[in-house]
Simulated scan of single mutants.
Amino acid sequence: MKPKFGVVVFPGSNCDHDAYYVIKKILGHDVTFLWHKENNLDNANVIILPGGFSYGDYLRTGAIARFSPIMNSVINFANKGGIVIGICNGFQILLEAGLLPGVMLRNISLQFVCKDVYLSTENRDTLFTNEIPSEKKAIKVPVAHGEGNYFATEDVLKELQDNNQIVFRYSDSNGIVSEEFNPNGSLLNIAGIINKKGNVLGMMPHPERACDSVLGKTDGQYIFKSIINYLTN
């Protein structure tokens, strides 16, 4: 099966075209934009909630987008095992929608952070990470957010660890996780998590911004190629 991707567009999304470009032009797969007011997912096999500032980040990041009409369809899709990836603001929306546990707080610095970071892959046996080479100690992707400080109760953090739901953690280039490499104050250096079923991923870093060799970094391709590999093999 050749997968079809759907990129949800909210008012204020600004990474929707980046995601579309990667899927269509770089990886050569079908992709369509999905307007937030619609209910139809257009037979997409994978839903991408892109980064940006949905609804201007009023109230809380993702808090209004969670109530967009299309999110009912996305939630039903995910609950039935459909593949969903939320990137940056998309991750925040997944948290607000209850598809992933925890919340996002302001960066501990209270400053917007925009830079390349390294991520240690904590779980390589997921549909989002199966193409990351075993010898790859860390992947390099950018972050760009003001509220990426992941917070959860001790019970939730324990459950995430026990179920191997922490997928990415901020690290150095050798995959060593340390607080000094944490750009936002996230507990346990968490950069990305999955749900218990493993079909929903939320991550603050932007893999779609690290997929084109023209930009000098392509590690983000591993995540999208992992999804494609899962669906085609």
Score class of each variant (00 low, 15 high):
G51M: 03
T126I: 11
G146I: 01
Q165C: 13
I223K: 00
I194V: 15
N233I: 14
N195Q: 11
V177G: 01
G90L: 04
Q165E: 12
N45D: 13
W35N: 12
N184D: 06
G56I: 00
Q92W: 03
E208P: 04
D162R: 13
F10L: 07
T126E: 05
V113W: 01
N163A: 12
D219K: 06
S54Q: 03
M71D: 05
I70T: 14
G216W: 02
C211P: 02
F224M: 08
G146N: 00
I132L: 10
Y222W: 11
N199V: 12
P101S: 10
A210E: 03
F112C: 00
R209Q: 03
L94H: 12
L187K: 13
N130E: 11
E154W: 05
T32M: 06
C114F: 03
A78P: 10
I93A: 08
S120I: 06
G86F: 03
I139C: 02
N163P: 08
L34D: 07
I93V: 14
K4I: 15
V103A: 10
W35I: 12
S213I: 15
I70R: 09
L95C: 14
M104G: 01
K25P: 03
F53Q: 01
N72T: 15
G198S: 11
E154F: 08
T218A: 08
G102L: 08
N89T: 02
N164W: 05
L41A: 11
V167C: 03
C211F: 03
L59K: 10
F224L: 07
H17E: 11
G82L: 10
G90A: 09
R106D: 00
C114M: 05
G146Q: 01
L119C: 06
E122D: 12
L160G: 09
A210T: 04
D30Y: 09
Y222R: 07
A19I: 12
